[in-house]
Design a protein around this nucleic acid. Structure first.
Lengths: 165, 165
DNA sequence: TACAATTGTTAGACATGTCTAACAATTATG
DNA sequence: CATAATTGTTAGACATGTCTAACAATTGTA
């Protein structure tokens, strides 16, 4: 029994390659196998092999020893990965206050597995946090208090509940 | 060159097996290969094969045609996966308002890749949202307004900015 | 321009995790 | 309790994606 879905979806690996090529190619810069391999932490033969697969799917143009370039379709996929990546990085960085390096790492993993629905909501969430100074200020200051002290700030209850440690 | 790290980390697959065994074994219920295979959507030989690997690592006790049980170490790993799973489900469900099914799916994927730092923060975030009625009420009502209307509620700015579409 | 250094490719090994087909053990039932 | 149904295992194919080793092309430079 063979999967008969559209087969349009990429694996995490292939998405990584597309993303790397897009990022390296910003501003019409020439993209090299070596750069991709360094960016992704794999050896050059892995890149060559990935480029072959992506060429067959017409997501990448690549000729032996020659140029590497995303096709319009490949670019579309890459842009989408990058969009998810950025939103996730912002979420972990801004909203959760995670350090940049960890935020990046998590974004790199999660970008490949999160559903589009959750992705949209997360993006909206970040937009909201960043755009709504009052809501977010109240929110984040209380949240930070909670993070630091491990208990809720006093103004957190509707009634002035006496519950203190 | 061989990786020389502690080799303690499990793959997503192996974590899934451990998690399934823990869930199926709740309340001392007998765990069967068939159940695991159904729960994870794989065929039985895949389960047998996974059990073999997990036995070698002493995370699972399994004898041919016999009982399947987590070792204390295996249980520890499984509990940790389940903890992440639950926190993520709550985050997507409660905080982002995602439907249960999608929240589950995303949790199942992300639980295997998220860093412990982000995991802790996310859990705290959910705790906060759920525990701080005032902060969260203000926050979520504004957030929901934003989700529904696509623009910020009027009380969102510090100054009464005129910026309306 | 010839040679050296660098970059890229090919071939093939290997690890992981899945599957199907065939067989074996266990369990249920007439 | 004998046989059928179910459950589980083994063997081995296959897909993905990585690697090393060897070789080939390109580029830089004396």
């Amino acid at each position: 029994m063979v999967k008969q879905e559209a087969q349009r979806e990429q694996t995490a690996s292939m998405e990584d390659y597309l993303e790397a090529i897009a990022n390296l190619g910003e501003g019409r810069k020439v993209v090299r196998v070596k750069q991709i391999s360094e960016m992704l932490g794999v050896k050059m033969p892995s890149v060559t092999s990935a480029l072959k697969k992506l060429s067959e799917q017409e997501l990448v143009e690549h000729e032996r020893y020659g140029h590497i370039k995303l096709t319009p379709e490949g670019n579309k996929v890459a842009r989408d990965v990058i969009r998810r990546h950025k939103a996730l990085t912002r979420f972990f960085g801004q909203a959760l206050g995670i350090n940049e390096e960890t935020a990046e790492e998590d974004a790199c993993k999660i970008e490949h597995v999160i559903s589009s629905l959750s992705m949209e909501r997360l993006a909206k969430f970040v937009e909201f946090i960043e755009a709504c100074p009052l809501g977010s200020a109240n929110f984040s200051s209380r949240y930070e208090y909670y993070l630091e002290h491990g208990e809720l700030p006093q103004d957190c209850s509707k009634r002035s509940v006496s519950k203190r440690k």
